[in-house]
Design a protein around this nucleic acid. Structure first.
Lengths: 229, 229
DNA sequence: ACCTGAACACCGTTCAAGT
DNA sequence: ACCTGAACACCGTTCAAGT
């Protein structure tokens, strides 16, 4: 019942916010966020770029709506009772959501944009941390730590996935550095890195987000690790 | 003795790579990385934008040289003998370097650019982790975890610092959400976040990178946390 | 070899005008 | 109220030409 007062005035809209958001979402999904420009979006919809500004204040405003649209479609499964299991599962869902929507990572990491439909994850994480025996303040702290870790890990994972798409994965920069300054000298100045250079990519591929998360939880849930503040 | 063979041919260069890099570094330091454009840089130096392309393949190539220049100027103090103390100190230096040069965060986090002059930090971290009793493979893993955490934390810290500069720090988005859907309903659907919304910024300001790092180390250096792989 | 001038193919956004 | 057309103020980069 949104027809506020009397009948609608003026020209009836040909474009709806929902349609524009949906079209933007499709372009990002199909061709990546870099391909989403106001002109490109307008071409897809069949209007001029300027018509979009009648529905959204700016491109950022539009992106905020796309973000909320994506967040509203995220899975919200039933969670296990054990708080630590809940924690690992929700963090995994959060990470998965970012991996599948890599364009939101820089926006959300910079803290400029947030989707109301996704805050339940943070609520669950803090609640589960409290369930593990932390105070609310401690839970806030650990939630931050987890978030920073997750954001950084996803950024790196997205990068690797992007690289895998195009090039035949040339030599890692560490190999280049070792090659440039010579193996002899490299082994002296950076013994570990010169050994690891060749297998760096393999080790990277074997990295487990969940294992790292468990390390953080092991350290953060230890009662001794939280002095009175 | 780089004058390879015979005397120099052609027109003597008016611009040097070093001068261009220095000018670019100054612009970024004074006005931020967003202000560095090829045209702006050329104006500063007193040439056309196109002249720059005779010294660098692209803007990215130029940025790579600026990055290396910055990395080469980072402090490299004597480190304590105790491996855990070394770890915390080197990570602090790394974080500090990023906080003081926020423009490198997205570049390095995406893994596209790396400065040879800064790899000693990674070498020290891995060596210290081995000194704490880990295998090289385990040390690699934990180094990744630390790196992800650091990258994410710095990105957030830089954001906050940027916000503090301009606006009088409007309400946090959590407060906005709570206000929009009502305190009553918010307290039901997200009890912890509705309680934390008002003090979120204060808690954020009280977050300690070092404390989070210690949590990670506590968990990761525990012998039980590394099953055979 | 080193640098210039003009141009290409883009951006997000403003603003006056049309229906 | 809704949309168009032209324009503004930018980008990074290419390419032929000058010295």
């Amino acid at each position: 019942m949104k027809t506020s007062s009397g009948r609608a005035k003026g020209r009836p809209p040909r474009l709806s916010k929902e349609d524009i958001v949906a079209a933007a979402r499709d372009i990002i999904a199909d061709e990546g966020a870099e391909q989403l420009t106001m002109r490109r979006l307008a071409r897809e919809i069949g209007c001029t770029a300027m018509a979009l500004y009648h529905h959204f204040q700016s491109k950022d405003d539009l992106l905020l709506h796309v973000l909320e649209d994506v967040a509203a479609r995220l899975p919200h499964p039933v969670l296990p009772a054990d708080p630590r299991e809940r924690l690992v599962l929700v963090c995994g869902l959060m990470r998965q959501a970012f991996v599948e929507n890599p364009w939101v990572v820089p926006l959300v990491a910079r803290g400029e944009m947030v989707a109301p439909s996704a805050v339940w994850m943070t609520e669950e994480i803090i609640a589960a941390l409290v369930g593990c025996g932390l105070s609310v303040e401690q839970a806030f702290d650990v939630n931050q730590t987890i978030w920073y870790y997750t954001a950084g890990q996803v950024a790196a994972a997205v990068r690797q996935a992007g690289e895998a798409g195009q090039k035949p994965a040339g030599p890692h920069y560490l190999e280049t550095i070792v090659a440039e300054q010579g193996e002899q000298r490299s082994a002296e100045t950076m013994p570990y890195l010169s050994r690891l250079a060749g297998v760096w990519r393999d080790l990277e591929a074997g990295y487990s987000y969940q294992r790292g998360l468990h390390h953080i939880l092991d350290g953060a849930l230890d009662p001794d690790s939280h002095p009175a503040r």
